[in-house]
Structure formats: structure tokens, C-alpha cells
């Protein structure tokens, strides 16, 4: 029941974040979505994810506010507003319909299959010595995943260093 309330709160905050005109208010609303997600992870028995989501959300908010401060501009509505909105909403309704068809085939909430992970749960502590099974999975059983993650983060840092290397020139009128 708490999860339903949290998800409804997240949907409400997401609508505010998308629709409000002021950019700073929008960034703060997306921060509310992130902290509600942190609480949801805590209810779903994932304390590792809750800690990580909390600190990542703080850093993400600092970077977003750094990008948007003193730079708000009003949203302009012009042209084919009705046609664009209706076509987007129709696409989303189609997406929701097919998603509903797909969701019926999944296992019900609260009863996962756990075919792969049974072996990890039985042998995890004996074979790795780590008590925290999430750490045992990401650094021992599936360490290739973490290596790929390190590569992606490294590429992202290189990309940011390249994009922000020297001040850009402002186009002359």
C-alpha cells in the first residue's frame, strides 16, 4: 500500500516537473521524484540502492541547478500545438496498450521466479566470503558488468572533458 502512495506521489511530481514554467521549480520537482524513489528502494528491501540513489540524486541536483540557474526562458507555444499534442498522446496510448499486453505475461508482483539467483544465494557466502550478496554479485559473479560500467563512466568523463575544453565562441550577428 505504501508503494502505491509513493508511486502516485512520483507520478504527480513528474507531471509538475514536466509542466511547470519555471526551470528551477522543475529541477526541484525532479529532485522530489528522486527522493521518493530512494524511499521506494528502502521499502523494497534494497538498502544498497537506497544509499546510492540518495547521494547520486544530491550530486545530480547540484549539477542540474548549476546548469539552469539564471537561465530560465518562458516556453513558447505556437504553430501546430493541437496536432502535435494529439499525435503524441495517441502514440503514448498505443504504447500503454502494448505494455499492458506484455505485463500480463510477467510473473505476479511478490512472487519472482529466481531460477538463476538460487545458486548465488546458496553458494554466495561460501565461494566469495562476502556477506553482502549484492557486492558478491557485482564484484565476483558478474564482474564483467562492473568492468563495462567502469568503461562507460570513463568514456563519459573523457567526453565531458572534450566538450568543455575551451570557451566556445558566440555567433556574431
Amino acid at each position: 500500500m505504501e508503494l502505491h502512495i509513493l508511486l502516485l506521489f512520483m507520478i504527480f511530481a513528474a507531471i509538475i516537473a514536466i509542466e511547470v514554467k519555471d526551470l528551477l521549480s522543475s529541477v526541484i520537482a525532479v529532485g522530489a521524484v528522486g527522493f521518493a524513489l530512494c524511499l521506494a528502494f528502502l521499502i523494497l528491501k534494497a538498502p544498497d540502492l537506497a544509499i546510492t540513489q540518495l547521494v547520486v540524486e544530491i550530486l545530480c541536483l547540484i549539477i542540474l541547478i548549476r546548469a539552469t540557474i539564471k537561465r530560465d526562458l518562458p516556453l513558447v507555444i505556437e504553430g501546430r500545438w493541437v496536432f502535435n499534442t494529439i499525435s503524441t498522446l495517441a502514440f503514448i496510448c498505443l504504447f500503454l496498450f502494448f505494455a499492458w499486453l506484455a505485463l500480463r505475461e510477467l510473473p505476479r508482483f511478490g512472487e519472482p521466479i529466481m531460477a538463476v539467483v538460487k545458486k548465488y544465494l546458496q553458494e554466495g557466502e561460501g565461494r566469495t566470503g562476502a556477506v553482502n550478496l549484492v557486492t558478491a554479485i557485482i564484484l565476483d559473479f558478474r564482474a564483467y558488468d562492473t568492468l563495462g560500467e567502469a568503461t562507460v563512466l570513463f568514456t563519459s568523463v573523457i567526453g565531458i572533458m572534450t566538450v568543455l575544453r575551451r570557451p566556445g565562441r558566440i555567433k556574431k550577428k
Partner: peptide, 27 residues
């Protein structure tokens, strides 16, 4: 305990922490 897992944790910590700080410093 746990063999190489604490060493991997330390290297991942250095990598993530200093990488994110470098991003912020560049901005």
C-alpha cells in the same frame, strides 16, 4: 575477508569519486 572484493571496492571507489569530481570541476 572475501579475497579480492575489498580491493575491487577501493579501486571502484577511487574511480567513481574522482571521476565525478573531475566532471564537476570541468563544469
Amino acid at each position: 575477508s572475501a579475497g579480492t572484493i575489498p580491493l575491487s571496492n577501493i579501486s571502484i571507489g577511487i574511480k567513481v569519486g574522482l571521476g565525478l569530481f573531475a566532471i564537476f570541476l570541468a563544469l
